[in-house]
């Protein structure tokens, strides 16, 4: 439980002359369900890109699974569900099964074909997200909430230890959002997947996550959900700067 699988130390990143992350420190421990909140432009997306290895740290370091991120090659240990996932071409003729199987493509590797075992894993992942009855449907025919479950299945089929979700519920109706977070809880507790949930929705984050990190260029807060609840609204709006569009169910 106490082995940090992500260790971020004194991390800074700037785009040309604009600083996006300033001296960030953050540890994510195995088994955590960490909510990362902050205003738009606060560096959340930059941090995710760094964790996924799409860009490299300019200052400071990131270690994932005990290894420096620049040397880290085992991309299968980190699953990713993007907010853009459901912006795919709806007319694309792909079944749920075909889409989820792409989650194994990199793991299986070049010049190799999917085995029976791989197909079994795909079926299990679809079962885990409760979408078995749709397995042979075209993904474009499903609702937004259902599609997002499929993208979760795609992300977990390769057995990642860490799952990063970037605003996964944008554009999904409230009823499905709730079921979606129940699924995340299940993945965290039953499947023992460490979760990093990026969201601007403070209410849901505090409801489901067990830790909160609040990022607006600098890390303003990092701690348990309970401690976070004790922060006053005033402090919170300080974190957020003048961004008043914060969604809060805070008391």
């Amino acid at each position: 439980m106490n082995v940090p699988i992500v260790e971020i130390k004194n991390l800074s990143y700037a785009y040309e002359d604009k600083i996006a992350l300033n001296d960030i420190n953050l540890d994510i421990h195995e088994g955590a369900f960490l909510g990362l909140i902050g205003p738009n432009g606060g560096g959340k997306t930059t941090l995710i890109k760094l964790l996924l290895g799409l860009i490299t740290p300019q200052q400071g370091s990131i270690r994932v699974f005990g290894q420096d991120i620049k040397q880290f090659k085992d991309a299968n240990k980190i699953g990713f569900v993007s907010q853009k996932s459901n912006a795919f071409n709806r007319g694309f003729p792909a079944t749920v099964k075909e889409v989820v199987a792409t989650g194994l493509t990199a793991k299986v590797g070049y010049f190799k074909f999917f085995t029976k075992k791989d197909h079994q894993k795909v079926i299990e992942a679809i079962e885990t997200v409760g979408m078995s009855e749709y397995i042979n449907q075209n993904i474009g025919d499903l609702s937004g909430g259902q599609q997002q479950r499929i993208f979760i299945a795609r992300a977990i089929v390769s057995d990642p230890k860490l799952l990063i979700l970037d605003e996964p519920t944008v554009g999904i109706d409230t009823e499905h959002v709730q079921r979606f977070y129940q699924l995340l809880n299940k993945l965290n507790q039953e499947n023992k997947i460490t979760l990093l949930l990026v969201s601007h929705d403070i209410g849901t984050v505090t409801k489901y996550a067990n830790g909160v990190a609040c990022l607006n260029k600098v890390m303003h807060f990092h701690g348990g959900t309970n401690e976070f609840e004790n922060i006053s609204d005033q402090q919170l709006s300080q974190f957020y700067g003048h961004d008043l569009n914060l969604v809060t169910h805070h008391h």
């Binding site: 996924l52 090659k73 991309a75």
Partner: peptide
């Protein structure tokens, strides 16, 4: 045939393919 799974992945979701190291 050899690159079917990579090509399919790339066609469906280029970002996902890149992140996965394809």
């Amino acid at each position: 045939i050899i690159f079917y799974k990579e090509l399919f992945m790339l066609s469906f979701d280029e970002e996902h393919a890149k992140v996965s190291g394809i």
